[in-house]
Design a protein around this nucleic acid. Sequence first.
DNA 1: TTGTAGGCGTTATCAG
DNA 2: CTGATAACGCCTACAA
Lengths: 342, 342
Amino acid sequence: MGKRNITLKDLSERLGFSVSTISRALKDHHDISQETKDKVQQLAKKLNYIPNHSAQSLKNSQTKTIGVIIPNLLLDFSSKIINGMIHQSRKEGYRLVISESGHNPDLEKDMLENMIRSGVDGILLSLTNNTKNIDHILLAKEKCPIVLYDKVSEKIPCTRIIVDNEIGAYNATKHLIDQGRKKIVFIKGAEHSFNAKKRFEGYLRALKDRQIKVDKNLIPQCDTVCIQEGTKLVNQMISKRIEFDAIFAVTDDVAIGAIKALKKHNIIIPKQVAVVGFSNSKGTTIIEPNLTSVDQPGYTIGIKAIEYLLKELKLAHQTEHLLRTTPKTIELKTNLIKRESS
Amino acid sequence: MGKRNITLKDLSERLGFSVSTISRALKDHHDISQETKDKVQQLAKKLNYIPNHSAQSLKNSQTKTIGVIIPNLLLDFSSKIINGMIHQSRKEGYRLVISESGHNPDLEKDMLENMIRSGVDGILLSLTNNTKNIDHILLAKEKCPIVLYDKVSEKIPCTRIIVDNEIGAYNATKHLIDQGRKKIVFIKGAEHSFNAKKRFEGYLRALKDRQIKVDKNLIPQCDTVCIQEGTKLVNQMISKRIEFDAIFAVTDDVAIGAIKALKKHNIIIPKQVAVVGFSNSKGTTIIEPNLTSVDQPGYTIGIKAIEYLLKELKLAHQTEHLLRTTPKTIELKTNLIKRESS
DNA sequence: TTGTAGGCGTTATCAG
DNA sequence: CTGATAACGCCTACAA
């Protein structure tokens, strides 16, 4: 084996042209003769010449690399987002460096620094549920453009790609009300989560619209957002003899946990209690009855996140510096998928 | 903002030392005076100096970047693998560029080329279910070290990280036989999948060990490996009045589909028919009854894949060329998780 | 202990 | 139409 990669210099020596001629010939530069171009391109192909990416990056001061930080890869929704990013970035000639923060703010900080250190043109960031201090993000933003997606914060002046959580939750709640449900439980999500808050607001607005009183007993709070927690909270409500005829949970997992609890107590779904989740993850069609859920366009979030980041990169490249664009918030539409559970 | 990144030259101008002194001071080179080091390191910190990664890559001809190609990100198992890779590569100071081939061999080829073009030190590859022609992989291998993981091929002379599919399937089948099941269905997976083949072999060996005859009617074949397919195939068997008392499916999704079909026909699980899946994905604890499944150590696969690739990189770096190491196959242990369905 | 010089591979400018 | 030269930022052998 033992082969060093082919360089322009190699081609130039083989063909007797100067390196710059070779470079231009390969780029179809207009003032190189067709004959030369042919020769060069042929040899390049034959030797399988591949331009050195590091050298190009160094020269153009752009790496064609985008960093992605995601709190938890182990979710259908995350995979969909990443998928959208992969496809769009590929289309645009960028590659993706992906990291997982595990909802740990220290890791998040570290990864942000690492990405910048290792050379990316921009970063797509979804915050951890525990990110309270945002200094490290503001600092990173000085060094390289950041676009927030899914888990965002209003305190960070960056473009944000999110779904209309509030409207999605409003519609889901209204859907339950329209069925005549009056005692609708809302299982709340992580304390500091922007999305969880918005969903709660949507729930409240729907109740208000239909003049249903808010009952604090019907609003339990998750410690961790998972199946077990949904089961636990519903079990608690049942043993406290709290009455309710519907459950709207902040995520599908929590809703699935709720269904499990209801079934254990022989409560008939949806006749006695209807259940709705949020995200439209794969589990919705595994659990029985199939779970009604608010679909979030994860794939599109990924696409849009790349698109908006690239817009900023182009702008920054033109003006040759990072600029404080007024941060836009892009809200994508959710869509209620009705299934057996409601 | 308008700030170019700080370079060694900037520091050198500010402090009046030459660039090389700065460079060495930052690296704690032994023959720089402590005083100089202090000054330099202080200023570097103050100005938030970050070495240019492209320049370093160019100089050292290594990018500290590993490419990962995965056929389908949208699986729990995939996420686990990627997670392991992320954590291990981070620990080793490498970053991960991730792509998804969508089980499309053309895309796979393209991504392989793209990765090499965009500069990675090595590649972790999991084949598509449809990869028949392997020329593009052999070609890529000439340019950069490749380690195969999960979906591998024996024809490709690369290190392989896999699980003991055959043993896992053998144990799962034996588990069913030990319960007195005699007519055990095996739902086969993708035609050209190495893993699917091995699982089938494990099933066959278990039957043989216990002198149970192989019945072709009990071995349907999936077109696509998904929930719907499991349901479809089981429905077909039932309507053909084929008798069976257990089902072992090539993946959890297929097993979940099978359970759905059985429940629709009021067949009691596991009393009348026991069901076992493969992968231990999240759905196993959502479906009711919870699905017995062969757990695959996805996270560890990720870790090992990085470890072995880095070993090869180090070797290649030492000897300054790619070398034909005899390809090892690393087999990780699976583990049967017994649940309600069997 | 510090500085000089050259090169990694590519590209842009300028000259011929 | 082609070639020489310098520069991107970093590193390191060699000099001083």
